[in-house]
Design a protein around this nucleic acid. Structure first.
Length: 458
DNA sequence: GCATGATCATGC
DNA sequence: GCATGATCATGC
């Protein structure tokens, strides 16, 4: 125990005093930092003179302020991103549901956060990282009023899942800004939940990495970014707000919409432009504040006369080497579905062969699908690459592979995704049948039939 | 008509 | 030149 700062001003003065300094410069001589402790502990001890704690009280109990330290990085293209999600506090499945949001443990500890940002740099010793920015995030402040509404609805969503006995089905992508992130040693580190005997993965409340990245871009890089929601949401969710706003365009054909919204383009992404314009956004819809903070990707889906969807949905091609070197929880595929929401913008073909705006739907992959069937497909793919048994047979010069096929799995499959068949990635193990050292780029695809079932859900 | 392999189009 | 989102082509 040391000095306890009493006021917001004193906390801020100490925080500002640390700006521009490295952790090495800040380190208290008497603090034995053995490189194992966290940088957060170093700052608590050396800048704020108190021992770290994991009590339910905020760090500065008198001022009601929680102290956090978090990294950001400079990307190859010069833009900035948060490096990590901000972990706030463990979710106490057995108790948190007993409270209202206003009285929740989450809010009690995290209503006001004094946030220190340091610049991460892979090439440096971590003691040489520099604290560059200070930020005060208070959900009571006008500045964070709209975020606070969304955070409240996120918290409510998580709590309702616990009350429904579905804590084991929580996923970080369930929510917009406030996530329930994995917080155990691994996915088998599980604990009790109140309304179901199935054990659930340990999870913590966090601000998602997309939310943190948006804070970096807005407050550190000073970017100007369009906002969709201009007035308080009141008791609507973000999705309800979107649906309410675009609903008046349901049933309109592509040409009607383009005329009404004064769009004149033949670009392939015209459906995406149409959707943005419905929400009164001029630029790229994925570059709006809300879509960035919640990491929402727009996918336009075209439904045929007979209700079927012609095409499955592709994702970036994977490197064969990456797959065999990654663990499931570290894989690109897991990360994509655990952390991305999708805004499906559905167009349906009518009798006159025109695509008519049908509906929008916000979706994220259910945790049990991700940890079940999707993981299976990924593991099978990994096994095939590792054993070099990629090509199954060659007929008329066309190769058939052993990769998981559309018909094999209800949710996803593996197929080529390349410029042409000569567009390849290196194989870590040569192909047994052909001796090939490289193979046509492939990716994971979501089955068209699965997409169909998603957009048919009410 | 569908599954699977193959490829196109756009933007950076 | 390549990554990414999207779509085509062929054989069963």
């Amino acid at each position: 125990m040391g000095i306890r700062f009493l006021t917001r001003e004193e906390v801020r003065d100490a925080a500002i005093g640390s700006l521009g300094k490295t952790f090495r410069e800040l380190k208290d001589k008497n603090f034995n930092y053995n490189n194992k402790g966290t940088l957060g502990q170093l700052v608590e001890r050396s800048v704020f003179k108190f021992a770290n704690n994991s009590r339910p009280e905020p760090d500065f109990a008198d001022a009601g302020i929680e102290l956090k330290l978090t990294p950001y990085k400079i990307n190859r293209d010069g833009t900035l991103s948060a490096k990590e999600r901000l972990v706030l506090c463990l979710i106490d499945y057995m108790n948190e549901y007993k409270y209202s949001f206003e009285n929740s443990c989450f809010l009690h500890k995290n209503k006001s956060i004094e946030l220190l940002w340091y610049l991460y740099d892979k090439s440096k010793n971590k003691l040489d990282y520099i604290i560059t920015n200070e930020m005060y995030i208070s959900l009571d402040d006008k500045e964070f009023e709209k975020d606070a509404e969304i955070i409240k609805s996120d918290w409510t969503f998580i709590i309702n899942k616990i009350i429904d006995g579905k804590a084991h089905e929580l996923s970080e992508s369930d929510t917009m800004y406030l996530g329930a992130c994995p917080k155990g040693k691994n996915s088998s580190d599980k604990i009790q939940q109140p309304f179901n005997d199935i054990l659930a993965m340990r999870r913590a409340f966090c601000y998602k990495v997309s939310y943190m990245t948006m804070l970096v871009r807005k407050y550190i890089a000073g970017e100007r970014i369009e906002k969709i929601v201009k007035k308080p949401l009141k008791n609507q969710t973000f999705e309800e707000y979107i649906v309410k706003t675009v609903k008046k365009y349901y049933g309109k054909s592509e040409s009607q919409l383009m005329k009404k919204l004064r769009i004149d383009t033949n670009a392939k992404n015209k459906f995406s432009i149409i959707f943005a314009r419905m929400l009164k956004i001029d630029g790229d819809i994925e570059n709006t504040e809300e879509f960035l903070k919640a990491n929402i990707k727009v996918k336009t889906i075209r439904v045929e006369n007979d209700g079927k969807i012609k095409e499955s949905m592709s994702f970036p091609a994977f490197k064969f080497e990456d797959i065999i070197n990654e663990k499931w929880e570290e894989s690109y595929l897991y990360d994509t579905f655990e952390n991305t929401k999708f805004m499906f913008v559905v167009f349906r073909k009518n009798d006159r062969d025109e695509y008519v705006f049908d509906r929008v739907k916000l979706w994220n992959m259910p945790e049990e699908v991700l940890q079940g069937e999707i993981k299976k497909v990924w593991l099978k793919t990994k096994k095939i690459i590792k054993s070099g048994k990629i090509v199954k047979s060659i007929k008329n010069g066309e190769k058939e592979t052993n990769f998981p096929k559309l018909t094999e799995n209800k949710y996803c499959h593996v197929r080529p995704h390349a410029k042409n068949s000569r567009d390849t990635y290196i194989l870590p193990v040569n192909d047994k049948l052909t001796g090939a050292k490289e193979y046509t780029k492939q990716c994971f695809w979501l089955n068209n039939s699965y997409i169909k079932s998603i957009i048919e859900e009410v």
